[in-house]
Design a protein around this nucleic acid. Sequence first.
RNA 1: GGGCGAUUAGCUCAGUUGGUUAGAGCGUCAUGCUUACACCGUGAAUGUCGGCGGUUCGAAUCCGUCAUCGCCCACCA
Length: 891
Amino acid sequence: MSEMPKAYLPGDIEEKWYAEWESGKRFHGTPNPDKKPYSIVIPPPNVTGILTIGHVLNNTLQDILIRWHRMKGEEVCWFPGTDHAGIATESKVDKVLRETEGVNRRTLGREKFIERVWDWKKQYGGTIIRQLRKLGTSCDWDRERFTMDEGLSAAVRKVFVQLYNKGYIYRGKRMVNWCPAAQSALSDEEVIYKEVNGKFWHFRYPLTDGSGYLVVATTRPETMFGDTAVAVPIGDPRYSHLVGKTVNLPLTDRQIPIIEDEHADPTKGTGCVKITPAHDPNDYQVGKRHNLEFINVMNRDGSMNSVCGKFAGLDRYECRKQCVAEMDKLGLLEKIEDIVHNVGFSERGGVEIETLLSDQWFVKMGELAKPAIEAVRNGDIKFYPERWTKTYFHWLENIQDWCISRQIWWGHRIPAWYRGDVNDENREVYVGETAPEGEGWYQEEDVLDTWFSSWLWPFSIMGWPEDTPEQKFFYPTDDLVTGPDIIFFWVARMIMAGFEFKGQLPFRNVYFTSIIRDDLGRKLSKSLGNSPDPLKVIEQYGADALRFSIVYIAPVGMDIRYSNEKCELGRNFANKLWNACRFRTMQGPVSDSFNKLAIPLDKLTADEIHMLNMLEHAADDINKSLSEFKFHTAAHDLYELVWNNFCDWFIESCKPSFNKSEESKQQALAVLDYALWKLLRLLHPFMPFITEELAHLMGFVKDGDSIMTAAYPQTDLALPANADTVSGLVMKKYMLITAGRNLRLTNNIAPGKKMEFHVYPVSQELTDFLRTDEQTYSISAMLNASNILVKFGKPEDMKQTAAAAGISVQYCDAGAILAELKDLVDPEVEKAKMEKRVAELKGWIKGCEAKLNNQNFVAHAPAQVVEGVRAQLTDLQEKLSRAEASIKVLQ
RNA sequence: GGGCGAUUAGCUCAGUUGGUUAGAGCGUCAUGCUUACACCGUGAAUGUCGGCGGUUCGAAUCCGUCAUCGCCCACCA
């Protein structure tokens, strides 16, 4: 066996194994009727994207599930791919072209521009897919798809036509959210509201008859050019005599009517409100009720149009400024109020959105939502954590029509064709998967919302609408791992699409990951510069370290506070594991009982039984945790199992066995091998690289084979029936050893100096156990004792022993351990220790007595609990008398 | 306005259906012989479980309420 370095160095090892896995097609899943299917579809990252720490968490969890199920012998397939991300990609490439070539999409024109986006995609797109490999994700790369691949585009067209023919898709002039940056409509979900400091401008609108003016307040002065009425509250005595009259709209030559409408709230401001039907959703409704004119005052880029007279061409904010100044000059500005209000921003463009009237395509969602609600309500689809179902239901139960058209070029062009004049509202329309026959048809310019292809992902990625074996075998998928921020965008819509187009749910479980923040709790963002680069982290700490750390620190359903330093935890853990194996290799060649323990059960030492028992319990717990998506719990269990049980106690307990006899050494090594191989397999889904490397180094896995397909440990080892009892005794032994070490340290006795210990276990059973040769030998070795005297002592025995001067005692839950140290003992220190102990015990006793004296407790608490307290009290009293006896000796 | 979540050791967080005087990692302090590991070992210290009230024999845990922080939805001329 080659010499292992003292520290684990992940770099080359990770490269080596990933290449080997990939070239060995080990990630490939294929329909296999002999096996149980297990599948996940990746939430497709934007093709422009680069790996973030959020992706790391999300994909690590998916990979853990995938590797776990693969090791359980299932036919596993993780479908990867990327999303064309319409607006994001279009603006990204547009920006690149401006910066590098001084051209942009408008100067290039539609076809040329799209060509350039494809070029860009080929060259730079999918960076994130390459980066994911560094993480160790075992996606089936042979099945990588892109939402604009031909097959997936065909799925989009088919779905569009189907919904259109069903009457679910329609085109109409509606109020939509408009992003002036993208110059496109947006869905409601793409608008994010932010609280901003704004102003409330109170304007005077003079009555046409010269009898005064009405005061209206607005946060958007620049839209006044689109005002077509002033509304007053219904039946408001202040204004009812004015209804039907008109006001002169300042800065224009128009006169607009005063109307009564429920929208005007008498308690707000003056109660009068200006109505701009083409630029506000509420005003739009008012406009429809009163048959008002809809005047659009803005261009698509957010500048003012020709309706605005001398303000035409100004940017909306500049126009606002000038409007206010002009009104002020005219003496029509009554006052300015500071307010804090919510303003909608474009999620992608980051600019304030406009609500305006335009022709768009919509999907009626009401019917689609029904089975989606039902599936989650009846538990066919489960959410983890479950509380997200509330968000889900709330949205679906109040669902609005989905605006699916976008006025950009990069995306799926809407499969609708027109014939006739562009401005003719009654021109001929044809919707179909391919262009219609005949002359004069021209295609709709708009493309579809990106999510209109993403919502088909779980089956379009498997070849739908073609009938493929993949769909038969892998659909529905099993688990979805994604962020709660896309419940509406993606999760809910996928569920709707699954039922509508496949007649079946798309996945059974949805695990929502936590949001990652920096260690100060701030959101990660490029502008704050607090967004770590996972590739650098991988370089510094290793992919396994990053994976393990992030799972370890990710609390269930809460935000994660992440910083790169936290990866030390994973790195140190990997190093610990590495060294445990290194230690083993230094003891000689690996035995052949790593797969099946070749030692008869009755020959196992108590420490060995304990270790095997802990492994059994851990395997059980970890499988259970994973099946409940408790990744964090599983990671903690593994950490403790490896570090605490295996390294700190079991390896240390083996060392004495090595010296005892050749037979006991070989036996210990056999158990070590068995345990190590199990540990590596348990850890593999979390830390794929190091476990593969070690499995090969140790000879558990042959060349050309992989730990990836080794069986995931289940509880399968027949242990002695009393294994749990033995474990309990061993743990008590460890407590006494800890107490003994403490005794050494508090008395400043060098660890190298051999000394004699007297052990007073708490029970007869433990006494008998510790008196065996096996155990006295083991304790002696672990405490570096010259002798161990195990006594099942009554307090008076203790007094006798303690009668000699210079006794130091250390208590623990398993009993007491003491040593005669003569003048080495500082009586004052001992006395203080004892007094503290006595005080502690008295406190406990008082608590117990109080309970038992409480008639209500004795009467109401379960007998078991009452008995427990009684037993505890007896135990405590005994301990107390021993402790008091020790103090007397010291006085 | 409606909803959701959080508040436990200096920091980050566990804490299953209520049942000993609440745990871990990091950090801190002390120490370091030995057959893996200083990315380590050994040992130690550390808490009014956000406040108040209630239910209960018993509350970090259940209920109410308040406070603080965060998120989502709706709405704000």
